[in-house]
Design a protein around this nucleic acid. Structure first.
Lengths: 149, 149
DNA sequence: AATAGTGAGTTCACTATTGGAACTGAGTCG
DNA sequence: CGACTCAGTTCCAATAGTGAACTCACTATT
């Protein structure tokens, strides 16, 4: 495929896509968020081929999204777990899933979880970090250049 | 690559990944949100190869994310624009970009836009649709099965 | 002691996708 | 007439993904 490399682009979206923008990575992360930790469990749960899984896992570790730790010296056994950076990606995955639930037919949520803060089932919504109102393209307009607020 | 087909999976995340989960699609959508509409402008802006662009554009149209309209009969000229479904994807892209800005070095926002509702520069945040609090994995716990709230 | 099983990969052959460049075709401009 | 624009299509070589089998270091079973 001679995949294009976005790692030098000066765009937050392109750089994020460089980390999680393939077909398997978001699902690996979904499983990690659900508590899957071992190589074979990822393989079993997703049906991803083993060499691709090796690459993805290594790439996520390189990018600091997953951490690989040895949990048994003999025989050597490893565990993959979300780092703080990876944990922070979970809401983004939930936002993607929310879109899917709204617009695609016959889909279940990727995780059925309860939001401890309110006690209800958690569903993601993307809002403006500043005013808390839902973000919508129609409420956005180009920033006059040079302006920062 | 014999790309895996997630279109039959019963998981909102997997199905969403099936629509936008490759390296180019989020960037095509970013450009569309910025106002790019024609085939050549996408090609020029992204540097994507033309045959891949054709495929991606067709796939997005098939999925109902973009709409293709004829805006000149002779010569035939087409315009690609975000549908309502596509517009609804923009906040998700912004959430991805926010993550990139937080965790990756040397990145600029994909669009510098003003949020008309509050007047400030828009930055995305993912919250619980129910209580409006920021979503974080640490606040989530598995739902007792059968329970829906 | 021999066999089976587990976790974590690697190797191999095969196939599908991508990138890049060139090409087509319809129509407009000077 | 020749050059140019838009919207693709065609072709090839390079690369990435798949599935199956294999390795290696241990542990458990019979």
């Amino acid at each position: 495929m001679k995949r294009n490399d976005f790692s030098q682009w000066d765009c937050a979206l392109a750089r994020t896509v460089d980390v999680i923008g393939d077909w398997w990575t978001p699902l690996i992360l979904r499983d990690a968020a659900r508590g899957v930790t071992t190589f074979d469990d990822f393989h079993l749960s997703l049906g991803i081929s083993r060499n691709t899984l090796t690459q993805r896992l290594n790439s996520l570790v390189d990018h600091g999204v997953l951490a690989k730790t040895l949990y048994s010296e003999r025989p050597k056994r490893y565990r993959y777990a979300l780092t703080e950076q990876g944990v922070d990606l979970v809401p983004v995955l939930m936002a993607m899933a929310s879109w899917g639930q709204k617009w695609l037919q016959d889909v279940s949520p990727p995780f059925r979880v309860r939001h401890k803060r309110c006690g209800h089932e958690a569903t993601a919504m993307v809002v403006c970090a500043c005013c808390g109102e839902p973000l919508a393209l129609s409420d956005l307009e180009p920033l006059p250049k040079g302006e920062s607020a």
